[in-house]
Each structure stands twice: as structure tokens, then as C-alpha cells.
């Protein structure tokens, strides 16, 4: 049976992990490859690397880093952040990335989704959507959640599926960073309306939140950052807990 996926997300700036990572046994907690290796060894099903470098130099470093990760890591990984063209994607896939995550540039030019899906196959096109619920309405936001658009989450999600997205990575801005659980109602609606896998992001604080996101939110995968980075949740323990709650996971 296909299992639910647990995915740690690493923020990368100029080739280094940022936002704080706290593993005593690591020689260098800032080195994304070391971290990736640890996560791969201790139960992560996939990894996401989010490039938050703003400089051209940072982007070049990112390419080298992707190649370095691909050489050492034997599970799939997605790279996101600032990807806006076929050439960008071609580059990252050639360095060994398995999937790319596209957010703002898909909103600015939706045809990009069709082009990427046609050229590289939908399996490597993850569309990330940041949305915020304002007075009951889920509104899509641009540029790392800083700029609101006129678009509704569910309409946009349906459109990106139609254009050839292979997966949707939905981050609830209301839940992100709160550690109070995922946006399960919106996730369940996405999962029931769409026919592609939904990755849940934003709000993980404890194991129960993961149980809920799979049972109530009907998500196919769940992403978290700080609870994993700071060792608050060990992935293998989490998976045991999920298994005890009749959620299929991989060991």
C-alpha cells in the first residue's frame, strides 16, 4: 500500500542551512548535506530544500549544493525558491534534483506549468501555494506570503492541476509557525476536489497534528521544519505513532 510521506524542509541561504538547526551529533549543523544524510538515515521519505538566497552568487552555490546532495542522498528531493524558467529547472534537474517547487513564477505566468510539465513530465513539477484565510476566504499570496492576490486557493489549485502540476504543496499562512496543527479543513477540500497528491505544510507542533493531517486533512504527505530541526519530534518515533493509529508509513 502507498504510504503517507514525512518530509523535512530545509531553508538554504548561500548554500547553508538557516533558521537554526540543533543536532548535537552533527559535525556541522549548517551543512545541508550532513543534515540531509541524517534525515535520510532516520526515516525521512523525501526532502525539500528551499533556496532563500537573493543573490546570483547564492544561486550558483545552490546548484553546486544540489549536485552535492544528489551524490550523497539516496531518497528523492525537491528544490524550490526563485525558480522562474525552463532553463532554471533544466539546470537543477541536471544537477540531480528530482523535483522542483514553483510558487510565485507560476502565478505570474501560469503557462510555465504547462511548459515544465510537457518538457520534464508532471512528476517533477510541484506547485507550492501559500494561502491565508481572511474572513472565511482562502486567498493565495505571492512572494513568500508577502503580497496578496485576487485568487482563491481552490480555484488556483484546480487550475494548476489542469495545467499539469504533479503535486500541490499547500502552506496555510494562518497555521505556519504556530505549532497548533495543520489547516485540515482546507487540506481535505483540496484532497477531495483534486486528483493529484497534496502535501500539507504549516502548523506541525506534535505527533497528533500529523495524525490529524492524514486522517482529517486527507493529505498525502506532510512537511515540517523546526519540530524536526530542533529534535522536538524524531521522525522514527512519529512514524511509530502514526502506525499505531492505523496510518500506513514506511520504515
Amino acid at each position: 500500500m502507498l504510504t503517507k510521506r514525512i518530509i523535512p524542509c530545509l531553508d538554504i541561504k548561500n548554500g547553508r542551512t538557516v533558521k537554526g538547526v540543533n543536532f548535537v551529533e552533527l559535525r556541522d549543523a549548517g551543512d545541508p548535506v550532513e543534515l540531509a544524510r541524517r534525515y535520510a538515515k532516520f526515516g525521512a521519505d523525501e526532502l525539500v530544500f528551499l533556496d532563500i538566497s537573493a543573490t546570483i552568487e547564492g544561486r550558483k552555490t545552490m546548484r553546486n549544493m544540489v549536485a552535492n546532495i544528489a551524490q550523497h542522498i539516496n531518497i528523492p528531493f525537491t528544490v524550490g525558491g526563485g525558480i522562474s524558467s525552463i532553463a532554471d529547472v533544466d539546470d537543477l534537474l541536471h544537477c540531480g534534483a528530482d523535483k522542483v517547487s514553483i510558487n510565485s513564477s507560476a502565478i505570474k505566468r501560469p503557462d510555465l506549468i504547462n511548459e515544465l510539465s510537457d518538457k520534464f513530465g508532471n512528476q517533477c513539477v510541484v506547485i507550492a501555494i501559500d494561502a491565508k484565510q481572511i474572513e472565511g476566504e482562502w486567498t493565495v499570496h505571492l512572494a513568500g506570503g508577502t503580497i496578496p492576490t485576487q485568487m482563491n486557493l481552490f480555484d488556483w489549485a484546480e487550475e494548476v492541476e489542469g495545467r499539469g502540476a504533479g503535486e500541490i504543496l499547500f502552506t496555510s499562512m494562518n497555521n505556519d509557525g504556530t505549532k497548533t496543527g495543520f489547516a485540515n479543513d482546507a487540506l481535505a477540500k483540496l484532497s477531495e476536489t483534486l486528483n493529484i497528491p497534496i502535501i500539507a505544510s504549516g502548523g506541525a507542533g506534535n505527533a497528533q497534528h500529523f495524525i490529524d493531517v492524514f486522517k482529517e486533512g486527507k493529505a498525502d504527505a506532510a512537511i515540517a521544519a523546526s519540530v524536526f530541526h530542533f529534535g522536538e519530534i524524531e521522525i522514527l518515533d512519529l512514524k511509530k505513532e502514526l502506525k499505531n493509529n492505523n496510518i500506513e508509513v514506511r520504515f
Binding site: M1, T3, E167, N195, I196, A221, R250
Partner: peptide
């Protein structure tokens, strides 16, 4: 067909 999410994406036995 339609009974499942397509693509199948992830770990299966």
C-alpha cells in the same frame, strides 16, 4: 483510473 491519486507518488511495497 479514477479511484486513486495520479501520479502514484511515494513509497509502496
Amino acid at each position: 483510473k479514477t479511484g486513486v491519486k495520479v501520479p502514484q507518488m511515494g513509497w509502496n511495497t
